[in-house]
Each structure stands twice: as C-alpha cells, then as structure tokens.
Design a protein around this nucleic acid. Structure first.
Length: 128
DNA sequence: CTCCTGACTCAGC
DNA sequence: GGCTGAGCCAGGA
C-alpha cells in the first residue's frame, strides 16, 4: 500500500542543522505533552518554537492533528482568548467542548472559563 | 507560477 | 474600547 509517511509531504525546509522535523511535528510534540485538564494557546506554542507571530501555522498544523498519529489533543489548544476557535475542525463542532468538559474544563460560549488558571505554557512547563 | 485563504496575534486608529 | 490592517508560513486552486 502506497502509504507510509504522510508527514513526508510536510517536509520542511528547516535550516540544515540537524533538525529534520517540520514545524508541524514540533507543534504536535508540544501539544501531546499537554497534561490532562490543561490548555494552551497557539501563540504560546508558537512562542515556544520561537515564532510568536506564526501562531497561524500552529493552528493550521492542528488541521492535520486529527490525521496524524499518535493522536494530538488539539482540543487542548485554543486561541489567546481561550476561545474554541478550532472546534469546527473536529468531528463535530461540539466535540471539542465535550472533550474539555471531560477534563473538568468549563466551557461557556465557546470560551474556556478560568483559562489563565488552566493555561499550560510549554515555555514554562517544558522550561526550555 | 501567482493569488488567496487559513484552528492567530499585535499594533494602530 | 472595538474594529481594521498588516505580518507570519504553508498549502490549495
């Protein structure tokens, strides 16, 4: 079956230094490390990767989060406001909220309550 | 090959 | 204090 590495398509042009992983994989790696009951923002991940302004790429990387394995808890990633901007990208627009609810995360009006309290900063937790 | 859009964010008005 | 524009990287038409 002609299918082995879909990520190969996402092959990046990262500077030759040893890092062959793409920007997307870096995002996935960080997101997978998000502990249960915690959430983070695209900007935080982007900042952790060193590209604060490329938060869009982070969100976009999440577009393939459901297609990449192992599974990426994209539902724990929201925008800077804590709003579930990407809920529409899930199987169902309510799936994201449900998943968060299972982690004891309260969501009101598509926005995470106590967001800053449940906020998980990779730059701090991972202390890179 | 060029143009546009996209799960964002910041700065300016 | 809310809206608009610009910047970011990458992929699809």
């Amino acid at each position: 079956m002609p299918n082995k590495k879909k990520s190969e398509k996402l092959k990046t042009v990262l500077p030759s230094g040893g890092e062959d992983i793409s920007f997307f994989e870096q995002v996935y790696d960080v997101v997978r490390q998000i502990p249960r009951g915690r959430v983070t923002s695209y900007g935080a991940i982007a900042a952790y990767l060193g590209t604060r302004m490329s938060a869009r790429m982070v969100g976009w990387a999440m577009s393939g989060a459901g297609a990449v394995k192992p599974k990426v808890p994209a539902h724990r990633v929201v925008n800077r406001n804590g709003m579930l901007s990407g809920k529409a990208a899930f199987a169902t627009p309510t799936l994201m909220e449900e998943l968060l609810a299972k982690e004891k995360i309260k969501v009101k009006d598509d926005t995470i309550l106590d967001f800053e309290k449940k906020f998980w900063d990779p730059a701090v937790e991972l202390a890179l």
